[in-house]
Write a protein that binds this DNA or RNA. Structure first.
Lengths: 228, 228
DNA sequence: TGAATAGTGTCTCTAAGACACTATAAA
DNA sequence: TTTATAGTGTCTTAGAGACACTATTCA
């Protein structure tokens, strides 16, 4: 009973829908709940916002605690506050959308042992209303890679257009024509630029030119990438 | 009245960015604050969420208290919760976007005397961080009328394509070619449909065919209306 | 050589926009 | 008649997509 207020009491949490790409499949970061509420259930990472902590900072902190990463594209997704959505009381959660470059394993954080990347398709039930939050996150992600540079946030510093195309194909769930994709990406003069390097993978055909992102994740593209 | 909690205490409010069209200009609903905090300042309508009240219901209630209207297109916009954004304490506000058909005057509600429609352009400073919330609302509105039926929410049951075009021109701030607009709207087979009626206004040229909306405000259009 | 991937050429279809033109009303 | 608005025709340009083709690597 540490806190009192003249107004109705709400708790405010942040949840993070963090995506990455593993082996060509869209993955989401989930934890196995270890505390009393929903013990053993799968859930999105998240936690209470500190008394003097901005919402975005809380989301960054939660993600860092789970993955050890804090240089990440992160933006607010939506807020979920129905009475009864959390058995602990009136909990309003501000969900955030994050995109991480591929090889980020959940590492030594406070709750890291519980965290794991799981494919979005085929994921079992989630605690609370997290299934809906995840669905909203996927929808937002699919929309945003069409008109922002967000897809590059899945990749490292340098990448091939084949790797970039794999991001779109995984998120949209459809194959894209390699030739037309190439042209679509190059139409935006400030989406990606060739570095001059090439990536040669054994037994994988002609080496591909390497590119780097010219915009950060949430910047708008001047020419959208059409979703089929 | 004192509430207690084991977790950090937040107050949760809803604010409403309500738009309408008056005399061809985009207008937003604002109030003059009468209580102690920010007395006399212009602000967006809003208020505290009840202990057992869903967020969207709270936004509907606030809007009804200001305008007497509750049949309205309303959706969540974003959540603003920086520490220090409200001098009363840690207040997290969930902002909502509303669109009302033109002739809805603020009427007999609890705070109705203070509420008024004001043109978005040329509006003075707003209390708290409401200027940013309004800017985000305008941006969201401008984006959404391009790919949803939201523009029809500004109009009555029946409307001409000239009136619909005026909505786009007011929100986007650009003139649109009447002929091309006509075709763009008709390309979507399920955006609007002619009612068979005509509207004849004295001294205003050839009477225009009347249309009605085939979709509600937030439904997606199959063919977008291109923003110039 | 063939298999695999990168990248280009080219064709068709549709949309966006400019703009001329016709249609129908009031003053 | 002029003025104003509704609505159509038509031309140009650009993008989306299908798909053939060339380029460059490894086995």
């Amino acid at each position: 009973m540490a806190y009192t207020s003249d107004y109705p009491i709400f708790s405010v949490t942040v949840d993070v829908v963090a995506f990455t790409l593993v082996a060509g499949a869209l993955q989401v970061l989930v934890i196995e709940r270890g505390d009393d509420t929903g013990r053993g259930e799968t859930a999105l990472p998240g936690g209470f916002v500190g008394p003097d902590e901005p919402l975005l900072a809380a989301a960054v902190r939660e993600l860092r605690e789970e993955t050890g990463v804090d240089d990440v594209v992160l933006e607010q997704l939506a807020t979920y506050g129905d009475p009864g959505r959390d058995p602990r009381g009136r909990v309003v959660t501000v969900a955030h959308l994050a995109v991480l470059p591929h090889p980020v394993e959940p590492t030594a954080g406070t709750d890291a042992a519980d965290a794991a990347w799981r494919p979005v398709s085929g994921l079992g039930p989630l605690a609370f209303d997290h299934a809906r939050i995840l669905a909203d996150g996927v929808e937002r992600l699919a929309a945003k890679i069409g008109y922002t540079a967000l897809a590059t946030a899945f990749l490292g510093e340098e990448f091939t257009l084949g790797e970039l195309r794999a991001v779109y194909e995984a998120v949209w769930g459809v194959p894209l024509d390699p030739g037309n994709f190439q042209r679509a990406v190059r139409r935006s003069t400030d989406f990606v630029a060739p570095t001059g390097g090439r990536r040669d993978l054994p037994g994988r055909g002609r080496p591909a030119a390497l590119f780097r992102a010219l915009k950060s994740g949430t910047d708008l593209l001047d020419h959208p990438i059409a979703r089929p």
